[in-house]
């Protein structure tokens, strides 16, 4: 049996706080890419140009059905083969942004498809431009059903950032492994990482569900 050493926890605390910041930065950066990319992917699937629609559809399926870990390696190692060296951070953010962009495009698609056809027709009958139709009619109605999915993936991307440790992004998991290698103590570092993840993801999930309710209320869609 092994005893828990509190002094080690206090010693490591500053390093873990720093690493937690980097984890949040990776999650936030990756999510920002994903939010925009998801929008591009969903709009590309809504064009009438068949080959594009098909290619994007298959691309999204490919990304969604292969492991993120493999994609991280792919992005990081493929560049140098063609003379393009990416830093761990760049490669990591691209990989995670791409992965979650594909997921978010499906969330957006669900939201857009939940807007009744009559709304599109009415917008057309009122001679609204495409931009105005999306901005004033479709997006306000497509948003509430999409928010819960978007929130889940925000928490999801946060929990997937440890995978970036494999290419040397110095986030929480990377720090814990480094501590383990230096001190031969694994109990405290790995448990601390778990505790930090819980301490962030549980309140985040709660806040997101509150936010979702608030959006529904604000847009006058109380259920």
């Amino acid at each position: 049996m092994i005893e828990w050493r509190w002094h080690l926890v206090w010693e490591l605390a500053p390093r873990f706080v720093d690493a937690a910041g980097k984890t949040l930065l990776a999650a936030g950066g990756g999510y920002s890419i994903a939010v925009v990319l998801g929008l591009v992917l969903v709009l590309a699937q809504r064009t009438r140009f068949r080959p594009l629609t098909f290619a994007v559809r298959e691309f999204v399926e490919l990304i969604r059905s292969t492991p993120l870990l493999l994609q991280v390696f792919f992005v990081f190692y493929v560049g140098p083969q063609f003379g393009l060296v990416l830093s761990p951070w760049t490669a990591g953010l691209i990989a995670i942004g791409l992965h979650y962009g594909a997921y978010l495009s499906e969330v957006y698609r669900g939201g857009i498809e939940s807007v009744p056809a009559g709304q599109w027709e009415a917008a057309k009958a009122l001679n609204l431009s495409v931009v105005r139709t999306y901005r004033r009619i479709v997006i306000p109605q497509a948003l509430p059903p999409a928010i819960s999915g978007m929130g889940n993936y925000l928490v999801g991307i946060f929990k997937d950032t440890p995978m970036l440790s494999v290419i040397g992004v110095t986030e929480l998991m990377h720090t814990a492994t480094a501590v383990g290698a230096e001190s031969y103590r694994y109990l405290e570092p790995y448990t601390m990482v778990g505790a930090i993840f819980l301490a962030i993801s549980l309140p985040a999930a709660y806040l997101i569900s509150r936010f979702e309710k608030w959006v529904r209320r604000t847009l006058g869609m109380v259920k």
């Binding site: 929990k159 997937d160 950032t161 440890p162 995978m163 440790s165 998991m173 814990a176 492994t177 383990g180 694994y186 109990l187 790995y190 448990t191 990482v193 778990g194 993840f197 819980l198 993801s201 549980l202 999930a205």
Partner: peptide
């Protein structure tokens, strides 16, 4: 609430 990778390492190393 935690990552699969964290859980895997916890089960294997801790």
């Amino acid at each position: 609430g935690t990552s699969l990778l964290v859980q895997l390492f916890w089960i294997f190393f801790v």
